[in-house]
């Protein structure tokens, strides 16, 4: 069928040779605006960041136009910075903590919503709300909930005698990262539920019916039927989760601004501060390049897992 259409098209186009040349141009025009936009919005920034990270690019550059080449000095400066290892550890904790809980809770909720019950579909789509809210709105809301003295969380916990003193959720270096991770988990759950639910919906019912005959119900059904069939979707969800979480900036800036005492600084917030607070664009670029490199390692996994998902 496909070859047939192709040959007729080819035949017709041979007849109308002049029209075909015009058509090739039209085809290029279909893609050209998007190609230019992608190059300007992604290609140019990546190249520009690579160059900037090798230059002494500071506020002065904007006035003098001079950005001397300094080799890898920006990289050695940011890596030697005493905040760097903290930021690395925080980025790892933030990413792993967020993903692990988002995925586990998301999977549990997706399995729950696969049970058919009245209003299930409506409830599931309303669940998407936290994911659609502007991140800065979520940050503001959680700031008010986690507020140390008058926030509703501490007031409730005190009232229930779970704690004796208010917990300084966002003001203490020892709990701030946990609080920020908690908020990010809340934001990410809906995304995980939606994707995992659609993965579950694609597992044919016959498999469960056949499994039932062999005594595979409940946990065994999950272990031997659900999980093997969900694996490819799950790996896509996890990799996307890593790629998106590792670059999170809005939530942290809104909740803690990287503080208190740098307890919630990640590579992304550090990169922002170097560029737009200290105006050391070269160092900021070096940090974000390190971020991209880490992201890229996971991206390779991601591309391989999507390819597998498509193949299956």
């Amino acid at each position: 069928m496909v070859t047939l259409t192709r040959t007729t098209v080819a035949g017709r186009e041979r007849v109308r040779g002049r029209r075909r040349r015009g058509e090739d141009l039209t085809k290029i025009l279909f893609v050209l605006p998007a190609a230019v936009a992608m190059l300007a919005l992604f290609g140019y920034p990546v190249v520009k960041n690579l160059l900037m990270s090798l230059q002494d690019y500071t506020l002065r550059t904007f006035f003098t136009g001079e950005a001397p080449w300094i080799g890898l000095q920006n990289y050695s400066a940011v890596v030697k910075d005493q905040l760097f290892s903290d930021a690395m550890v925080n980025t790892a904790l933030f990413t792993i903590g967020s993903i692990a809980f988002q995925f586990a809770i998301g999977l549990a909720l997706a399995l729950f919503f696969r049970q058919r019950f009245p209003l299930g579909g409506l409830l599931r789509s309303l669940l998407l709300l936290p994911w659609l809210l502007p991140l800065i709105v979520s940050s503001a809301t959680w700031r008010s909930i986690l507020e140390q003295d008058s926030g509703i969380l501490n007031r409730s916990l005190l009232g229930l005698h779970v704690i004796n003193d208010p917990v300084p959720w966002l003001n203490s270096p020892s709990v701030a990262l946990i609080a920020v991770i908690g908020v990010n988990i809340w934001i990410g759950i809906p995304f995980n539920v939606t994707l995992l639910y659609s993965g579950l919906a694609e597992i044919p019912d016959e498999l469960y019916e056949a499994g039932q005959l062999d005594g595979a119900t409940g946990w065994r059904a999950f272990r031997y039927i659900t999980w093997p069939n969900l694996r490819s979707v799950a790996s896509v969800v996890l990799m996307l989760g890593v790629v998106y979480t590792i670059k999170v900036l809005d939530i942290i800036l809104g909740l803690t601004g990287g503080g208190p005492a740098n307890a919630t600084q990640t590579l992304a917030t550090q990169s922002y501060e170097k560029s737009f607070v200290d105006f050391k664009f070269g160092q900021g670029a070096a940090l974000s390049n390190i971020l991209i490199a880490i992201s890229f390692v996971f991206a390779v996994f991601y591309l391989r897992s999507t390819r597998r998902a498509v193949d299956e």
């Binding site: 992604f42 900037m52 990169s271 560029s275 737009f276 900021g284 670029a285 974000s288 890229f296």
Partner: peptide, 24 residues
């Protein structure tokens, strides 16, 4: 190639784009 470029674009942090666009 186009699809691959789109997938890769999803990995680029906003701060990288902001950095470059600011100077431009």
């Amino acid at each position: 190639i186009g699809l691959l470029a789109i997938l890769i674009s999803q990995m680029i942090p906003g701060i990288v784009i902001a950095n470059a666009l600011y100077t431009a």
